[in-house]
Write a protein that binds this DNA or RNA. Structure first.
Lengths: 153, 153
DNA sequence: GTAAGTGCAAATGATTTGCAGATGT
DNA sequence: ACATCTGCAAATCATTTGCACTTAC
């Protein structure tokens, strides 16, 4: 979805390590969708174009790209880790009712960071973390159900 | 560390399900230390007293106690999930330098919850989540190192 | 040419599951 | 008595590792 970004990522990759099929394909896959993808998703994606790429290589490449600062990952609740390009801080609101993953407004988390620094000297470094809860739709649904239950006895 | 709490937990357990050796031992272990324990830690602990209790039973019991609302768990970064008694909201600040797990002041997270509700209608339900960063000590150390590096050329 | 990267298969760590038998209420 | 729990072993899911071979630079 962003050819220019992909090119600059490849440039950064070349500056910090070797450009290989697996790494190029991973960056391409990650820059073509702004979803949060699991290693398995990415493996499928890469293998569609290059069937020879092994799952282990996916994991090793993801680790390498992470060390180079090109990508990042988060642990959303139980399942596998999700990866995405390192494009500045953003945080995940995970709806436990419908599974939606919402990008949270940055400002709210800036306040959190400032609050923690003031309160206990803790410096937040993770630029990605997940908060579980209910999205607006599911929250309203739950509220409606409660009301119905109350009137129904 | 809190016999009264343990008794009330067992009472709550009896009200919602069966009181078994594994469940009792788990609650006892969890109420005797306020650490965050992995399932494996707890298994060791329980098996010290009751060697016959199987690992699978630990997981099933933890799941059951969670459904009853008596305990909760969080995923701290990579490793296994950590469990603790459900004693009101508290959040984890994990220092990625020294591994310390700090209990965060509740107020900061109340602000976060309110902010998310106002900004996008998201209702935070998880009463436990982890934020990665650097504790005061490690943050100061890192700052000092930066300063030293600058003067050192 | 050479170190870095890869394929493969097998190991690991955490957690889950099917089923037959034991146990709490 | 009867559903609920448990023990066991094996399955599963996500990820890692050792080693010989290949490739990017």
């Amino acid at each position: 979805m962003n050819e220019a970004r992909l090119l600059s990522l490849l440039e950064a990759l070349r500056a910090k390590g070797r450009v290989t099929t697996a790494r190029r394909a991973l960056l391409e896959s990650l820059s073509h969708s702004d979803r949060h993808r699991t290693a398995e998703d990415l493996a499928d994606d890469v293998r569609a174009a290059f069937p020879a790429v092994h799952r282990a290589t996916i994991y090793r490449s993801l680790e390498a790209l992470t060390e180079m600062g090109l990508i990042e990952h988060t642990h959303l609740g139980h399942g596998p880790a999700v990866y995405h390009l390192a494009e500045g801080a953003h945080h995940h609101l995970v709806c436990e009712a419908c599974g939606a993953v919402i990008e949270a407004p940055a400002t709210v988390f800036e306040d959190l960071s400032r609050g923690l620094r003031l309160a206990c000297g803790f410096e937040v470094t993770s630029r990605h973390f997940a908060v579980m809860g209910r999205c607006r739709t599911c929250a309203e649904l739950a509220a409606a159900r409660l009301t119905a239950g109350r009137s129904g006895g």
